[in-house]
């Protein structure tokens, strides 16, 4: 793998880095809020992936340039941006559901630490 490849695809390396960071937080942290943060980072990396791949080098933002239809104007691809707008909304929804659940869990268990919750669940199961 050449150095050029590394540099020219720097956006992918950032995406992969963010993805791994998010995924690591998700797996390693027992705190439910931190898990949600990890999930957010993980999802954001994907947003970056989409947005960066819509970029066309040397292109203008995808806003029509006057006079319309004339001249040789290179536009960036707007579609990934639009898609990611939707994905961001989805991400917010996921986050809010996750946080709402965390609040309810705190009410029900008195903690949002996964190991403590597991201990409580194990105790109740043994009592059954």
């Amino acid at each position: 793998m050449s150095f050029d490849l590394l540099v020219s695809h720097y956006n992918y390396w950032i995406v992969i880095f963010l993805m791994m960071v998010g995924f690591y937080i998700l797996i390693s942290r027992g705190n439910l809020i931190k898990k949600i943060v990890g999930l957010n980072v993980f999802q954001t990396s994907v947003f970056m992936l989409y947005i960066s791949m819509g970029k066309v080098s040397g292109a203008t933002p995808p806003i029509l340039v006057y006079p319309y239809g004339e001249g040789d104007v290179l536009y960036s691809n707007p579609l990934p941006h639009v898609l990611i707008l939707t994905a961001i909304v989805v991400g917010i929804a996921t986050t809010s559901v996750g946080l709402a659940l965390a609040v309810r869990i705190k009410e029900a268990y008195g903690t949002i630490e996964e190991d403590e919750i597991n201990a409580i669940e194990a105790r109740t199961e043994a009592a059954e």
């Binding site: 439910l32 999930l39 993980f42 996921t94 996750g98 659940l101 965390a102 869990i105 669940e121």
Partner: peptide, 20 residues
């Protein structure tokens, strides 16, 4: 049961990872 909450949370995490 309150375990419904933790189950839903766990599903949320794994489901979101899958969707991503």
């Amino acid at each position: 049961a309150r375990r419904a909450l933790t189950s839903a949370f766990r599903y949320l995490i794994m489901g979101s990872v899958g969707a991503t």
